[in-house]
Design a protein around this nucleic acid. Structure first.
Lengths: 242, 242
DNA sequence: ACTTTCTAATTGTCAGACATTTACTTGCCC
DNA sequence: GGGCAAGTAAATGTCTGACAATTAGAAAGT
């Protein structure tokens, strides 16, 4: 681990970067214990608060975890898919909401990515995932559902579809795209007719996935994408008029 | 912003979460100044170090930035695509390297995602992006290139392809998939024959993109994916034998 | 052998001090 | 009045020392 710091950033930033690089580069391996705070103070020749701030930075990125007590300390954390999901979702959500990304662009990205899962999902989906999709479709067709609940169910449906590809890396990458869209989707007010149409498309999609018809799933997703963009466009137009 | 904290986590974690939630929820908007450290101490009734650790956590996630001086303080940061890229790449890289994700799975995910960009890229790529692709192909065919430089050029080529879709959200999502693969790709030792084959495929890909032939690009990518998986498989087999 | 107690190591938190940076004010000179 | 310089105040960055809380392991006693 490098110990010479000469940039013009904060000391805690530099120290955090030095340790992060050591983790990425592999000289600190998973579950390995970092030197104690006191030792890091000596090694980098800084005060304890500075070291602690650096460690907190790393903890915020799930790179390390800390334990108190005698055999405690900071340990290199094995980044779990769960943690990575959450980070990805937070980042994506903020990225979309803070940069005035328009609905159409986000929608295009989301469905483009999702379509890349469809053929794999048609091939590999488990009965369990198929059942989840059916269950969500059933929920979506129940009357009296709030728009938000409908949206949440939509997300669950699409996640089941994505997970059907049986590729955790794909699931991880898609988590951001699908979940981060939810706040944008929530601007849509669904009429009963909209919902009927979406449920019909979801049903066709589930049928295709069940029948291992990759092309069918792909084209249905394509239709769904088009319809969603259209809904978003109408919503924007009507809100401008009002 | 909530100020009552009663969980059993660190104080700095709780405070960071409270502020983060306020940012996500929208009660703290972009470029808004947070209360000074002293004010936050009062508000949450904790010491200054605790507040500072919380702020460093947020800074590590690019949620805030800080300025020194009289009119300084912590400000809600507009998450830039650049920052989001970097975060995504770090997270993805560590996720893959720490969870023994096998080459095949990662490769499948990467090319599946990339294929979702191909048709859009064929439609919209700028001459500039096309030129980048050609330039990288040229570099790749030069003799005496190290494996690492070849890999780097490969990444640059594929990023140009992805950027060609003209959708920043897609570029962002793909950044992780493409860049995070690089360490895994680096285990491959390319023979001259491998390189020739890859350059030929890249050329076909660039031709398809130039000719706005989405299907052609898609099928070429598919071939490239297959070939890359094969290379990885051979590499693993031979390393097991040695 | 088992339980209890003690001890030491380590992180979590607080308080106070000083350094550094920076915007703004004040005062002086022209 | 305008411009320049010095000073001032507010804020973050850093250091030090102290104590609290937690925990593993050693020591002691039965």
């Amino acid at each position: 681990m490098k110990t010479d710091l000469n940039e013009n950033e904060d000391l805690s930033t530099q120290i955090a970067e030095a340790i992060r690089d050591a983790i990425i580069e592999g000289s600190l391996i998973v579950d390995q214990r970092l030197p104690s705070e006191a030792e890091l103070c000596e090694k980098f020749d800084v005060g304890r608060s500075t070291v602690r701030e650096a460690l907190k930075r790393l903890a915020a990125q799930n790179l390390i975890r800390t334990q108190r007590g005698a055999a405690g300390g900071a340990f290199v954390n094995r980044m779990s898919f769960e943690e990575a999901y959450d980070q990805q979702i937070t980042t994506s959500t903020l990225l979309l909401s803070m940069n005035r990304v328009d609905f159409e662009t986000a929608c295009e990205a989301r469905y483009a990515l999702e379509r890349s899962c469809a053929p794999l999902s048609a091939q590999r989906r488990t009965p369990d995932q198929l059942a989840t999709m059916r269950a969500e479709i059933h929920r979506q067709s129940q009357p009296g559902l709030t728009d938000e609940a409908f949206c949440a169910s939509d997300v669950a449906f699409h996640r089941a579809l994505v997970d059907g590809a049986g590729n955790p890396v794909l699931s991880y990458q898609l988590a951001g795209a699908v979940e981060a869209m939810q706040p944008l989707m929530n601007i849509i007010t669904y009429t009963q007719r909209d919902r009927d149409r979406i449920v019909a498309l979801h049903t066709r999609l589930a049928d295709a996935i069940e029948g291992q018809d990759g092309d069918g799933a792909d084209s249905t997703l394509s239709e769904l994408a088009e319809y969603t963009v259209e809904l978003g466009r109408n919503r924007l137009t009507s809100s401008k008029q009002s």
